[in-house]
């Protein structure tokens, strides 16, 4: 009697410990699942992290979409960062280049990375960039300032309801982590 209860306990514990380990793994599995879901649905305005091919679209001269540019610095990143214009009216299908200016205000070499975000998030997949400083880490010498272009196009397939798209960049100082690497 006691013997069999002990065996039943051991069997049950094995199963439950297996569930515990599995759920710990599931927590980590949520990371790639989340990325895939964001990519598929365009949630959070996540955009491609690399340049797209230069595709010739039919330019829709009758339609105007306002693209707004926002710049931000994470925490106390010692930089100056702004775009040459606050907003631009664009025709879907036409390519535009907008310059951004960033400057390292410290006396040391700084590695920084700009993270883009597009809102509304559902419009992100229609916003294509062929050139962007956000595709790679940017190294700034001490007190160096630099003008960096972003070349983009709004896909004419963008649904009619979107009149305004906001493109936001946040610069992160990643000197410490990139030095370690």
């Amino acid at each position: 009697m006691t013997e069999s209860v002990e065996r039943k306990n051991a069997k049950l514990i094995r199963i439950l410990v297996f569930v515990v380990v599995g759920m710990f793994g599931f927590g980590y599995a949520l990371v790639p699942i989340y990325d895939v879901l964001c990519e598929v649905t365009g949630l959070n305005g996540k955009v491609e992290a690399s340049a797209v091919e230069d595709v010739g679209y039919d330019v829709d001269k009758n339609r105007e979409v306002t693209v707004e540019f926002m710049t931000a610095l994470n925490e106390a990143t010692p930089m100056v960062f702004h775009s040459e214009m606050k907003k631009l009216k664009v025709h879907p299908g036409e390519y535009y280049t907008v310059n951004f200016y960033a400057e390292n205000k410290t006396d040391k070499v700084m590695v920084a990375r700009a993270i883009p975000s597009i809102s509304p998030g559902a419009a992100a997949e229609f916003f294509k960039k062929t050139e962007c400083f956000c595709f790679s880490e940017q190294t700034f010498q001490a007190q160096e300032g630099r003008t960096m272009p972003v070349r983009f196009v709004v896909n004419p397939d963008l649904p009619e309801k979107y009149k305004t798209i906001t493109l936001a960049y946040t610069f992160f100082d990643i000197t410490e982590t990139s030095v370690k690497k």
Binding site: V20, M23, F24, G25, F26, G27, Y28, V31
Partner: peptide, 14 residues
Amino acid sequence: LIAIMPVFAGAVTM
């Protein structure tokens, strides 16, 4: 508890 506590442990480990 068996299903969720490991997930929380994973989150704080991250």
